[in-house]
Design a protein around this nucleic acid. Structure first.
Lengths: 358, 358
DNA sequence: TTGTAGGCGTTATCAA
DNA sequence: TTGATAACGCCTACAA
């Protein structure tokens, strides 16, 4: 009597001589109390011996909830995203949800990849979307939202800001970086900005200038890197150096660690020493930054928490009425001081209290 | 006439005055040819205007295939796994499959986390499992297999070897590492092994000794690191150094990059220089290794390809009859030579042709 | 070439 | 406290 396929509620019911809806009740924690204690234990025993496993597809069809969330991110291979994903999955796991993942940075066009991923996810009837790929000018997000989908943005916001999001407080992050450098005695500070099309690139540049302004300073230079990548950092740093005679600087705040690493390579190639000649601060505090040379000072973002909170936010929203929690949550970053920052050689040490000295 | 829920085949059919099974046929690429051309285009038009999206849960229930695969890995946060996952998803994507992911290194016990994850995946009726968490003594794998599940192992094998797997050729990897060091002139080479409970730890240690044997050499020392982690590498290296007077060595082959990084820290703390005093080779070639100091020579494993191939293997197996492709696929690694390896100071340079000189 | 009927395994709503 | 019945949306024979 070999059963190759999985036993069903019906099978269990038959085995016990009761009706399948009784078994269904017994298996549902929320309605378990409606069934007599001894029958309940008999059902549990039978389920175990028969090897019953609930069929989620059937439940999903019947209840109209798939217990499944779509997660869109550019590329899991980018070290920023694994902790975010881990946070998401830990939160989803608590409620029995699974994440359906899509990497949207495909060889083909990005927008096509996104569209296709969203399509497939909707076919799976995901109950909501967690989106870590937003650009400031992404229109598909609006369309998706208009179609009734529940969405929470992670790490980056869209331009309009009417979508709930969990992001890092980039203004604060840049303030920490700038304050640190100013405290060390730096007065001429440059910025290697991220792409303006991304909210992080934008926010960090503004935050940088704001933070300088608080000290009565202005940016020595601002150059935008093409992308959050090492090569882009190298190139951007070359531009910074090219204009250094006219617009000198003793420190550089990069919008991202990869940009910072690229910048360090360019400096090294130019015969400049970090931090003796120029201090550098990164952003993200990705793994292994303490192993590079010199160890990179960086603004630590709460990636795991961002993932976790965003998933929680979405799950909560799925239970409430629409539009209840449409807030943007900002997580505070911290500065991790390492070897890539030091007092400028020509400046007096410990000049914290003299911001206008420059 | 606002429809808040999704339109169904029925809705489309009604809209056109045909039967839903006709629409069903029209939507299925495999049976599309059975429906008249003009009706087909009318169906497509209607589907588009109504915004029809196939309901996967219903299809899954009806056809008994979920188009979903369970992926078990220890922790996506470990830099080895993102490229593997990316490979998996790219392959699954080609066939319209999704991965259901579970990180099995939970605060609670590992075996419990695995069991729970497998349970949830079976409830989702995953069609197969991709497992990157195997230990050499994992019994649950056998049980899972016996229950009829299709499984492909990644990166690590179980002890018994009757499960298909896609792994890196660790024997070859160690040969590359050892040959490189011997070619540089090293004769006294030590090994920082990985945990014996993992197939990689085992295979690499054996591969190391085998490779030395090919040169008529034996291991200067072998110390096992507790885990694939930086701290474990530090500790293991301390042991190596403690016995160095009796069993000297000029080079170290580590079973893993993290172990190698830890070892470098210990050496630095002990006032020893890499590679001047001691050369080090890692394994995996994880990202950013070219940015550490000194840049770490490492055995590059084809992580992405491992993920991709394993998923392909599983998908193929799902189409054929059981047991068709139960082979173990070995992918060849490559050596990435960087700054952490050099000729030993006391040895003659370029002594490639004199293996017995020690 | 298209329509009909039944079932996939579950949940929900009544009725008993 | 339990049972009966009808969806949920799709697929697959088989009939027309």
């Amino acid at each position: 009597m070999l059963r190759t396929s999985n036993p069903t509620l019906q099978d269990v019911a038959q085995h016990l001589g009761v009706h399948k809806s009784t078994v269904s009740r017994a298996m549902d924690p929320a309605r378990r109390h409606l069934v007599k204690a001894d029958l309940l234990s008999r059902v549990e025993a039978a389920a175990k011996t028969l090897g019953y496993r609930p069929n989620h597809a059937a439940a999903a069809l019947s209840r109209g909830r798939s217990k499944t969330i779509g997660v869109l991110l550019p590329d899991i291979t980018n070290p920023v995203f694994p902790p975010i994903l881990r946070g998401i999955e830990d939160a989803l796991d608590e409620e029995g949800y699974f994440a359906l993942l899509a990497n949207t940075s495909r060889p083909e066009s990005r927008s096509h990849a996104i569209e296709q991923a969203v399509d497939r996810m909707q076919a799976q009837r995901v109950e909501g979307f967690l989106v870590a790929t937003a650009s400031r000018d992404d229109v598909w997000l609006d369309a998706l939202r208009q179609s009734g989908a529940r969405i929470v943005l992670i790490n980056r916001t869209d331009g309009r800001g009417h979508l709930p999001a969990v992001i890092s407080d980039d203004m604060l992050g840049m303030r920490l970086a700038v304050d640190h450098l100013v405290a060390l005695g730096h007065r001429r500070i440059a910025h290697l900005a991220g792409p303006e099309s991304l909210s992080t690139g934008m926010a960090r540049r503004v935050g940088f200038e704001q933070a300088l302004h608080n000290h009565g300073l202005v940016a020595a230079q601002v150059v935008m890197a093409r992308a959050y990548a090492i090569e882009s950092g190298e190139q951007a740093m070359q531009q910074l150096l090219a204009a250094r005679a006219k617009q000198p600087f003793t420190a550089v705040v990069a919008a991202n660690d990869l940009i910072a690493l690229g910048a360090m390579q360019t400096l090294r190639a130019a015969g400049l020493n970090v931090p003796a000649d120029i201090s550098i601060v990164g952003h993200n505090d990705m793994p292994l930054l303490d192993q590079v040379h010199p160890p990179l000072t960086s603004v630590r973002i709460q990636h795991y928490e961002m993932g976790y909170k965003s998933a929680r936010l979405l799950l909560d929203a799925l239970r409430e009425r629409p539009g209840s929690q449409d807030a943007t949550v900002m997580l505070p970053p911290q500065l991790r001081v390492r070897g890539s920052t030091a007092a400028p050689v020509q400046a007096a040490r410990g000049s914290t209290a003299a911001p206008f000295q420059a």
